[in-house]
Design a protein around this nucleic acid. Structure first.
Length: 223
DNA sequence: CTTTCGATATTCT
DNA sequence: GAATATCGAAAGC
């Protein structure tokens, strides 16, 4: 199977374009509402900043690979790998709306969890989907892995007739009725030092979506 | 709404 | 040993 045109691009292009896409598997479908871009060797916040390691090997994989890692010893977080094979580029799925399989997701997350909280935050999103560390390296495209990523079909059509940078610019210039940008960006959460600050405003979310995670400043973050 | 703090296991120094 | 792409509970607005 040929990878979608979009996934040939680095995560700085892919991440905002993933908003509104769905990831489906293990009985749950999530519509993505918040992501972060990680750019590899030029990005001090990336797991690949210090080169190829056992943990991050699949970040260097072909576009459409799932990169799953253990966070704080507890959570399983998911990235969509994009760009050319050998170039580490990932988009961290930070939050989404459970649009199918709400009962399954709630059974995993807890009976008292509100709908909009089921996949709010990267650890919670992984748990709602039933993600395992063993899913690291599986395909998000051909059905051979536990999850399938479905992009906006109209987006692929636009990429066939315009450059990715042009389409990205158009996406990010869209405005809501009140004039605010449909796609908002800001600093990445949970990262210490400069890589989490204003120099890397690589967190993207759908403006006003109730499933977008709360911004938490790192306890030791430097401004 | 906000801030603070402990839990947890793998990676890196 | 220390740090970490986090979470939920608790306590104070």
């Amino acid at each position: 199977m040929t990878a979608p045109i979009l996934l040939a691009e680095p995560s700085l292009v892919v991440a905002p374009a993933l908003l509104g896409a769905t990831i489906a598997g293990r009985g749950v479908t999530v519509r993505i509402t918040e992501v972060e871009a990680y750019m590899g060797d030029a990005d001090p916040g990336s797991h690949a900043f210090r080169g190829l390691r056992t943990r991050n090997a699949h970040l260097f994989g072909p576009p459409g690979t799932l990169y799953a890692y253990r966070s704080y010893g507890i959570h399983t977080c998911l990235n969509v790998v994009s760009g050319a094979a050998g170039v580490p580029s990932g988009s961290l799925l930070r939050a989404g709306e459970v649009v199918d399989g709400v009962g399954v997701a709630r059974a995993r997350r807890g009976a008292t969890v509100a709908d909009r909280m089921l996949a709010r935050g990267p650890g919670n999103l992984g748990q709602a989907l039933g993600a395992l560390l063993a899913d690291d390296g599986s395909s998000l495209l051909d059905g051979s892995g536990p999850y399938v990523l479905t992009l906006d079909p109209g987006l692929e059509a636009r990429l066939a007739s315009a450059s990715p940078d042009t389409v990205l610019q158009e996406l990010r210039s869209e405005r809501l009725a009140d004039g605010s940008p449909r796609i908002a960006s800001g600093p990445r959460t949970g990262i210490r030092g400069v890589a989490g600050g204003a120099g890397f405003p690589w967190r993207f979310r759908l403006t006003g979506d109730p499933t977008v995670s709360a911004y938490r400043r790192h306890p030791q973050a430097l401004d």
